[in-house]
């Protein structure tokens, strides 16, 4: 299916065919990572700005490497070191960046909807690299690419997403994408961290880890943010880890022997995942990270490479 969108904002917006186009394009680009010379000229002369209002190492680096391997010029703009501290508004900052004619702006912000706001205000392409508790589409895409490589297909798979569902944009993006591709999704976690009405997204809910991980093909563990305890949503990290942490013992007792363990990172070892599980052969956490670069290359390539100037279409 041909890619025609200006922006990538949310998995919720996409057609199943568009999701597969992104995953297929990423799969084709994976071989670049194994070349001696990791550079192709596809986006030569294009400018990509990473506009990050939240700390992020993995995602920002991943977009930066992806852009550079495609020969684009990548500029990092980190909010704390910038005019934001001098009182400039988000949209003003973005418009100032746009005045320097970038082709793609990659935005990470703590407010849900930040990427969509920019997409409306700016003419260049916008990629949502995580907005509040809303969506993180490139994370869902790299999860899908990892799953497809290991399981060969999507239709009929069963996936459990475990942890803080309420505050997780990773969970939200994955739920939307997986439901469109025919995957059955079960979410699980302490009741305080499961949003009410989550069933309306077409997922099952489990309130015990053992029940959630039984017979599934993939277990996706989410990071527990320490501030959830301060907010009174969990009694203690130790209790969370006892009930919701995945140990090798629980995994081998309740899950299938060919289950995949995924985690969007960074991992709290000993909290949501025991170190033995994180380092086990079930874990594909590092595959996820390398696939992240391929996915971001695909997104940048499809957005920046498909913007055509009217009247110049060649037969």
């Amino acid at each position: 299916m041909a890619w025609t969108r200006k922006d990538l904002l949310a998995m919720r917006d996409l057609e199943p065919g568009e999701i597969l186009t992104l995953v297929d394009t990423a799969a084709s680009l994976e071989e670049i990572a194994s070349r001696d010379i990791k550079k192709v000229p596809a986006l030569r002369g294009k400018t990509i700005v990473n506009l990050f209002y939240e700390p992020s190492t993995r995602t920002r680096t991943s977009f930066e490497i992806a852009g550079k391997w495609l020969s684009a010029d990548v500029i990092n703009f980190t909010a704390s070191a910038s005019s934001t501290t001098k009182g400039e508004t988000f949209v003003d900052t973005a418009k100032n960046i746009e005045a320097m004619s970038p082709d793609v702006v990659v935005v990470r912000h703590s407010a849900s909807g930040a990427a969509e706001l920019l997409a409306r205000e700016l003419d260049c392409s916008i990629v949502n690299a995580g907005d509040g508790a809303h969506e993180h589409p490139t994370q869902a895409l790299l999860d899908l690419l990892t799953i497809r490589e290991k399981k060969r297909h999507f239709e009929g798979l069963q996936v459990a997403i475990v942890g803080d569902i309420t505050h997780s944009r990773v969970a939200r993006s994955n739920i939307h994408a997986m439901r469109k591709l025919g995957v059955t999704v079960t979410v699980a976690g302490p009741p305080t961290l499961i949003p009410p009405f989550i069933g309306e997204l077409g997922v099952k809910v489990a309130y015990r880890l053992e029940e959630a991980i039984r017979d599934v093909d993939v277990i996706m563990m989410l990071r527990l943010q320490h501030e959830r305890m301060a907010a009174g949503l969990i009694p203690s990290v130790r209790e969370y880890s006892r009930y919701w942490g995945l140990s090798l013992d629980k995994l081998q007792k309740h899950a299938r022997p060919d289950v995949l363990i995924m985690h969007p990172g960074p991992v709290n070892r000993g909290v949501e995942l025991s170190p033995e599980v994180a380092d086990s052969h079930y874990s594909v956490i590092l595959d996820q990270v390398s696939k992240g670069v391929a996915v971001r290359m695909a997104v940048l390539f499809l957005l920046a490479g498909s913007r055509s100037s009217e009247g110049q279409v060649r037969a």
Binding site: A2, L29, G305, S306, R314
Partner: peptide, 11 residues
Amino acid sequence: LDMRGAPVVRG
């Protein structure tokens, strides 16, 4: 690339 739109990468 700019003139064609919707490129398909087959690897």
